[in-house]
Design a binder for these strands. Sequence first.
RNA 1: GCCCCUGUCGUCUAGCCUGGUCUAGGACAUCGCCCUUUCAAGGCGGCAACACGGGUUCAAAUCCCGUCGGGGGCGCCA
Length: 498
Amino acid sequence: MLMENIRVRFAPSPTGYLHVGNARTALFNWLFVRKKKGIFVLRVEDTDIERSAAEYEHQLIEDLRWLGLDWDEGPDIGGPFGPYKQSLRMDIYSVYTQKLLEEGKAYYCFCTPEQLKKEREEALSSGKIPIYSGRCRFLSPEEAMRRLEAGERGAIRLKTPDSGTLSFNDLVRGNLSFDLKLTGDPILVRSNGRPAYNYAVVIDDSLMQITHVIRGEDHISNTPRQILTCEALSISPPQFAHLSMVMGKDNTRLSKRHGATAVAQFKREGILPEALFNYLALLGWAPPEGEEVLIKDDLIKLFDLEKVSRSSAIFDYDKLHWLNRQHIKRLPPRKKAEIAYPYLKKTEILPEVMTEEHWKWLERAVECFLEGVDRFADLPEKFALLFDFSPSDMDKETREILQSESAALVIKLFVKKISKVEKFDYPTFAAITQEIKEETGYKGKSLYHPLRVAFTARSSGLELDKFIPLVEDGAKISFPKPLKDCAQRVSEMLEFLQ
RNA sequence: GCCCCUGUCGUCUAGCCUGGUCUAGGACAUCGCCCUUUCAAGGCGGCAACACGGGUUCAAAUCCCGUCGGGGGCGCCA
């Protein structure tokens, strides 16, 4: 028997791709509940038919799973308190609505949206409180019935107190209190018969026995309304915890113009799910010990909802990238190659069908190039060092290296010597350069720099002890675009020079 | 306009509840040095913050008040 039966939920509406802000909310819920060994519920809030789409719902589930979250009850796996989609729960809500109407705790409102909008604007411009006037509150039930029967469509509102204070304890912010005269009668059911968000959540959370509601700060001012609804329904409200918002660099809500915001986008760029997971957990929370590179199990152990920051946090792409590098490093070589493959196949560096020989080579190549790479999507560009060798496209800096006094001689000698060797590898390279060094007296930069350029047509890149074996072995394997070996490269370079 | 939340290095934060141990700690970024046949990685080091103004106190980042800044909300959106 569990001492406390903690149940939390993540309740997104399928109106767009999963945003990192929402992902963080989901993650904090997950961390909290996994630590407490409770139940995580996924519920889809699709009461707004105009904006919801099935396509988004699938994407949402996929993104959540990719991030590494799992749930114990949800629309895709069912559970004892289903259905887990609000659009499938319409008849449930109406039972409660009937009850509230009968008890006189809710009433029909026939004001039109246009009328309400006008009133709101007038109130705002004259400095008054822009809340519902309560005009229909005093309509008798008989009058309401009459108008309904006459074909008028009405929304249903909750009758709320006109004065007093309502306060509740927020798990991250402490005691919060609100002046009830500033809270108008909220719409429970829209005139199209669909429940409004604030109403549906209350009923669903109660029926699904949710004990802790962990959500964004933008819901703080909804909370009094929801507690009032609980009271009308005679149910006890859950505990609340409101998380701060995620901002962009300019301290406005994180949006597309700041960079990637959708989980799927980070996935596409080659951010590891464990890195995004790790980063999101660090956004507004810090582990007590100081070590920040953490995996899920560590995070579950260390997480503490009450230690979550109350102020908003700016999303830092640099730190995400750093964490990504840290997590990439921890991956076994084969895994890195497998993740890298799609990115390289897409740019036609690697073939559709990979032999074991390809994989082995790729493992080595990826191991070399991944150093200092932020995301897997940056890899094709790095591989160009191997696959694109064109002396005619060299940049200014590279050409200058070739114009140094040592360059022509070193390359010429090298071509001569390499033509005599059976098998070229790094030790051979070392031997040849040693000979050139002795013959010409050139050493260090003046010796190696021209050779680097001769091999790569670039002034920087991999270290040659890594580059040479990779190219030599790669040249023996078939690729969509063949890999030239070193001998060929140097002679092409010499040709170009003359 | 009104209400609510929030304010420690450029950024994420530790410390704040339970004043002194804070000449404010860590991480990212940045800068410098080392390593190195370039770059990166790695190692070492530097720069850098208690929003402001009043109180309370022997003593305030920590407690109180005010100001200012930032965010959110005031929907038949969620």
